[in-house]
Amino acid sequence: MLKIHNLHAKVEDKTILKGLSLEIKPGEVHAIMGPNGAGKSTLGYVLSGRDGYEVIDGQVELKGKDLLELETEERAREGLFLAFQYPVEIPGVSNMEFMKESVNAMREARGEEPLSAAEFLKKAKEACKQVHLPLDFLKRGVNEGFSGGEKKRNEIMQMILLEPSLCILDESDSGLDIDALQVVADGVNSQRSPERSFIVVTHYQRLLDYIKPDFVHILADGKIVKSGDASLALEVEKEGYAWLGGKAQEADA
């Protein structure tokens, strides 16, 4: 599914990813944990092709394609989905219009007919219910005035509608109450399939009780410094990141 090899990337002259390698097979769930400022969100931005995030070295392949050659929108159409740590508010564009445009952009890329307004509405309502958001959230401006937890659920709703092949969830659990955490986890689990892979970025082992990862990686100072199975998350929960030593501690500042 995804092969990252020796990825180096910088933002405004600051090198943040410093030789990150990671391989994800179809159907796998990989959790990434790591101190604040380690570069977890940066990894998501670099993979999705955000302007200003410059790759200085390394390769990334998505389903055998050179991902770094593609524009942001093309990456999305190739099946890459990033649930944002901080979803963007766009007043003036309705959530409904936004999601319809994006679903139809994906369909067009796959050579399918666009959904009619009625067809889309039906799907959107189902997805909306699945993440326990009231239906009027479809009419509101994109994330406009949504609470932190509502924004996260809105991201999961988009993921359900867009049917991506690689989902990167950047702290989709932070700021959620216990019930919302369950909703988000259920949403993710409902999408798990042998063809779909997940990168779950989280600070808390708790989410991983709900979404069972196949692998857990520790990202510190722009690199994967340790990988293991689900038990690694429990270790982190107990011991924190002190064992990483000096360099990563700086990044923790």
Partner: peptide, 20 residues
């Protein structure tokens, strides 16, 4: 940020600009 958000959902640059 808003432009990037739309692009990251597969919406074309020209369409995103128009929407925004």
């Amino acid at each position: 940020k808003a432009l990037y958000y739309l692009l990251s959902r597969g919406i074309s640059r020209s369409q995103a600009l128009i929407m925004l």
